[in-house]
Amino acid sequence: MKEHLVSLPEAAPFSLWRLHARSLLAAGIAPEHIVWRSSSGQDDLFSQPDPSPETETSKPQKISRNCLLFLETLLCHANPEKFSLAYRILWRSRRERSLLKTGTDPDIVMANRMAHQIGREVHKMKAFVRFREKTPQGSNTRHFAAWFEPEHHILEKAAPFFARRFTDMNWMILTPKGSVGWDGETCVVTREACTRTIFEDEAEALWKTYYRSIFNPARVKVKAMRSEMSPKYWKNLPETELIPEMLAQAARQTW
């Protein structure tokens, strides 16, 4: 049987993958005959898929809502394996009704692990975004911006949290994978890469004072700190530059 090549940008939204998956499924093409290739260029967004995606299928496939939601989460992952894994689960779930609940199946183990990593990063984004104030003169709403570097495509998943919480101010979260913005009424998520901009916020000095003072030098547990606050996030957290000095000071104290 002929091999089918599908080329998708790594950041392809779920809807684009679904178009391809739907027509492949309708044509009865098994996962082992498809090569999912991830391309990096933006041009590929418009490349012709093979076979060409159809918006309506001739044979409607019944896929449970749970399965679709699960695959949608999976597609947020940065690992390009996600395309073929998602299709394999889709393909198998038509026959194996309890596939998603079989937590020891190798495909499901892998997918659960990826979904878990995505959930964890959404949680860390809620924790580690740091807004800096940049209110233009004469504005009666306050303006804030933040720079964050997620590994996965999680902005759509994290956006509702920020919109529910920071309602009375204008804010933007810029990332290499897109942006989230709020103007007081609507929340807009894009997938266009942003560049890092840095500006000062005076309140940060108070935050650092707090961070330094709330630390108890009599109990140093660096491993516990690093496992929860991975060093990959440190460069965008203003307080972490204090850590070496705090540890050095703690080591000088004798109890």
């Binding site: 309602t167 109990r219 929860e228 850590i243």
Partner: peptide, 18 residues
């Protein structure tokens, strides 16, 4: 107003005491 609460809490940072 400002603010929200989630069902599970959020830790915004960790100090070197873990």
């Amino acid at each position: 107003g400002l603010g929200s609460t989630e069902r599970s809490g959020i830790c915004h940072s960790w100090t070197p005491d873990g």
